[in-house]
Write a protein that binds this DNA or RNA. Structure first.
Lengths: 336, 336
DNA sequence: CTGTTAGCGCTTTCAC
DNA sequence: GTGAAAGCGCTAACAG
């Protein structure tokens, strides 16, 4: 086991004290140029790097950010993670990634674990179960410990922290309005995520637009994302005469497309489809899905920026803000 | 800033020495039961948790594993990551996740950074650029430092470490043989990842089977995954009379399906399609894609198991092994 | 200019 | 049974 070289060993070999070596490596003006050179030379010879643990223990900064995600197999969160990683690595931060699998219990455990691992801050999207139970004490502890938290997408009003969200209601309104303008009269909203705060906002937005148009009607289908989902959506499409579908999540939208094929409905001639998603399925569906893009990468990058900025430029008495990332309606073949 | 409670504070408040408190918390038999009880009581009152940094500095173990991935937006790697996370969290490990974006330079930087952050071990899939350049000194350093590394999927023979791979050649043979048995005569292999070791193995497997059947011929198409990819595959499908396609990656396979629709070829009547993938696209393609599943989650879980086992039960003179995770041909509508 | 010292929070050996 | 002391590797105030 070849051990990594330490200040102590460099000091010994150079016949200097540990502190002189330490200062030299920081090019401290107190130290003679000659010594500085000698130190640097030996240090780079041994490829010396300070032990991050020791530095962290001393400084109580770990340059590490805890990321709490409900899922990772969902492309949205994968994209957010990618955005976060890209952004924080620019500033020399590392990410500890935890996946709660939508479980409240795991979320609590992970938050505690990372807190005691001294992460400098958190970026969090709440688990579904947490949103349903609405128990948030684990985050209040962080607040008390003065650990910065940024929440994104799945946020809670009960926690006073910076947030980065998508304007789901607005996005939904735009999507429905677009369908209405195209002439849709009977619009279905299909969701597999009805428990989530974001789904509620999307539904609300849809209802609002429809309520202002007496010629347009709305019908809802909420299904669980299980094996029977395809059959359920198929039945729904057969039993209801509709001319447009807004899928509140990618799965709902793509299955709608596939089941429409199966039933012989032409897209977009017989039925237009829009889905909330940043996912790959949309691009590779046939026909290509018109989507409400949540700009997942940007969302992640923005959350990361806000956190890193807060960590690097220590802000006293920071007033938490909620930032809204704009969505865009990306029009593709399924409505065109 | 409410600071976390330390042994020192507990000791002071209990009028005990730090070491007595420390031992009490470990229920050391040296300490009287009465003291142990007093200590535990106050500790849980303050919700004391040992400072992970200090413990790590002392023990040179961080309970942290470095994960180096080429991509995360690729569903295969997302699944592997999920498998790893699930597995390591069972044993109280955390993961530091780094995404190289297929860049050699970033890979080197990340490996160094995590090494100096004292991760206990690594789980790695090589970046494409690293595989092309075949420069692996950054891993040799880990070997020298005695940091365990597990490579998966994108591995290198030059590094002597545990590996978990998929038997790509065998899997490819099985897929082609299946097509041949179904009566395919002119089979195309389409890839967007020809530089990767795995793609080479898959191609080799395909060739081998075809070479043993003089009634069957093989034709290759290698494309870059850029904007023009769809047009390129469309042209290829039009210009060549083929009755089956093996896509060496999900993108190739799914685009083949979509372009077949566009050209009016019926799947699987006119053309059968198989793809290497664990992704979602396959399940939501129309018709559903027959796939060679690489069991990504299992791959990740296995790599994690091997590493955790090595870390927790310190193995002297461990002889590196290469473990092969079985693939399976999952037959769906695109060949049936 | 360089070195001594204390301390971050913990574990562990050795004394009492 | 309990406590003192050293040390993990580093930084920084203070001496010289």
């Amino acid at each position: 086991m070849r051990k990594k070289v330490t200040l102590k060993q460099l000091a010994k070999e150079l016949n200097l004290s540990i502190s002189t070596v330490s200062k030299s490596l920081k090019n401290d003006s107190e130290i003679s140029q000659k010594t500085i050179n000698r130190v640097h030379e030996l240090a780079s010879f041994y490829n010396y790097k300070p032990n991050a643990l020791a530095v962290s223990l001393k400084s109580s900064k770990t340059k590490t950010i805890g990321i709490i995600l409900p899922e990772i197999l969902n492309h949205f969160f994968a994209k957010v993670l990618f955005g976060i990683e890209q952004e924080v690595s620019k500033s020399g931060y590392k990410i500890l990634t935890c996946i709660t699998n939508e479980s409240y219990k795991k979320e609590v455990e992970y938050v505690e674990m990372l807190n005691y691992s001294s992460v400098d801050g958190f970026i969090v999207a709440l688990s579904q179960e947490t949103q349903v139970l609405n128990k948030l004490d684990h985050f209040k502890v962080l607040k008390r410990d003065n650990v910065p938290v940024i929440m994104f997408d799945r946020v809670s009003n009960e926690i006073d922290c910076d947030k980065v969200i998508v304007d789901d209601m607005e996005a939904s309104k735009n999507a429905i309005q677009y369908l209405v303008n195209k002439g849709s009269k009977k619009i279905a909203v299909i969701t597999t995520i009805s428990d989530l705060s974001v789904a509620k906002l999307r539904l609300e937005g849809a209802k609002e637009v429809v309520s202002k148009n007496d010629k347009v009607s709305l019908i809802e289908l909420s299904v669980k994302n299980t094996d029977g989902i395809e059959a359920e959506i198929e039945k729904f499409l057969r039993d209801n005469t509709i001319d447009a579908v807004l899928g509140l999540d990618e799965t709902a939208a793509v299955i709608t497309i596939n089941m429409s094929h199966k039933l012989g409905y032409k897209i977009p001639k017989d039925i237009s489809v829009i889905g909330f998603t940043d996912g790959l399925l949309a691009k590779h569906s046939y026909p290509k899905l018109t989507t409400v893009s949540q700009h997942a990468e940007e969302l992640g990058a923005r959350a990361a920026q806000i956190l890193v900025n807060q960590l690097d430029n220590f802000v006293e008495n920071h007033k938490p803000k909620t930032e809204v990332v704009k969505t865009s309606l990306i029009i593709r073949d399924s409505t065109n």
